[in-house]
Design a protein around this nucleic acid. Structure first.
Length: 283
DNA sequence: GTCCAGGTTTTTA
DNA sequence: TAAAAACATGGA
């Protein structure tokens, strides 16, 4: 990964397997806004960023220092992982997974803030993506801090843990409010320690997260995959369940277990954008 | 008006 | 134990 510091920020050229648009719109995060011309604005770990990718694939991290790029954004966008090798492995074992990798070869798994990922996917249940984005945005605007023009940090755990369901009414998340509060309170108390959970084997980590009221297997796996970068976590939403039924009646290939979550992301995006592939041919 | 949305909990048989 | 129903909200 090569980069250079320019007058306007940090530029990364020649990076293989990275599509900014596909990475930010494939359903793994809810905080990035497309402001046109391949440019997105968002916030992570309390830092605002404007980032763009041009037609040659070059990425510009606007207005940040080399130090900030190296100490956080490089990791956030997972720039040092060999996605080419991972995709070759994923593609080897199934034609639909090969198609999925080819369809959006530039998807990367972001390393999001663990508590933000937990909250975001609690709010995602039985909900659609545009509405999830709206709820998360209102959550940040109501209870985060304004750190730039129109940009808000994700609320900290302590603040959220002190709120009531009534306080959350303005974000209009419905029945999920009590789930969000239970998560915030358990994390604030240390009853749920996301850093400690990250040290556990996958099953134990899932079970620990599921002690939160409103966290089932799917939300637990999303938290592990997107918040703790556990690439072996395999979130099964309605799309993936259907895809497994149709393409893997014998079960998902076990050789892919260590990177099943990554495979899941290519497959999820592919199915969502091409729903016809999940329709069985008529007799 | 009905249906559905990156599920989970609660109720019912 | 397993299958329904309920859960808030808002766009299609």
């Amino acid at each position: 990964m090569e980069y250079r510091v320019t007058g306007s920020g940090v530029a990364v050229r020649g990076l293989e397997d990275f599509s900014l648009n596909d990475t930010l719109t494939c359903g793994q995060c809810f905080r990035w806004r497309n402001i046109g011309k391949g440019t997105f604005q968002g916030v992570a770990f309390g830092r605002p960023l404007t980032i763009s990718q041009d037609s040659t694939g070059s990425i510009i991290f606007h207005g940040i220092s080399e130090e900030e790029f190296l100490s956080m954004w490089r990791e956030y966008f997972d720039l040092d992982f060999d996605y080419g090798a991972a995709k070759r492995k994923i593609s080897e074992h199934s034609s639909v997974l090969k198609d999925a990798c080819t369809f959006a070869p530039g998807i990367r798994i972001l390393r999001q803030e663990p508590f933000e990922a937990l909250c975001s996917f609690i709010l995602s249940q039985n909900n659609n993506i545009p509405r999830i984005e709206g709820i998360v945005r209102r959550l940040c605007e109501c209870f985060g801090e304004e750190i730039g023009e129109g940009q808000w940090s994700f609320p900290n755990v302590e603040r959220l843990s002190l709120l009531s369901e009534d306080d959350l009414a303005p974000i209009r998340c419905g029945f999920r409010a009590k789930y969000l509060l239970d998560a915030a309170r358990k994390v604030a108390r240390g009853e749920i320690d996301l850093a400690e959970i990250d040290k556990l084997p996958l099953d134990e980590a899932r079970n620990a997260l599921m002690q939160i009221h409103g966290v089932g297997p799917k939300v637990a796996d999303c938290t592990l995959l997107y918040g703790l970068h556990r690439l072996d976590a395999f979130p099964q939403d309605v799309w993936i369940k259907r895809a497994v039924e149709v393409f893997f009646p014998e079960g998902f290939p076990s050789v892919l277990e260590p990177i099943a979550g990554l495979a899941q992301q290519y497959l999820f995006h592919y199915c969502r954008k091409n729903p016809d592939v999940l329709v069985l041919p008529e007799e």
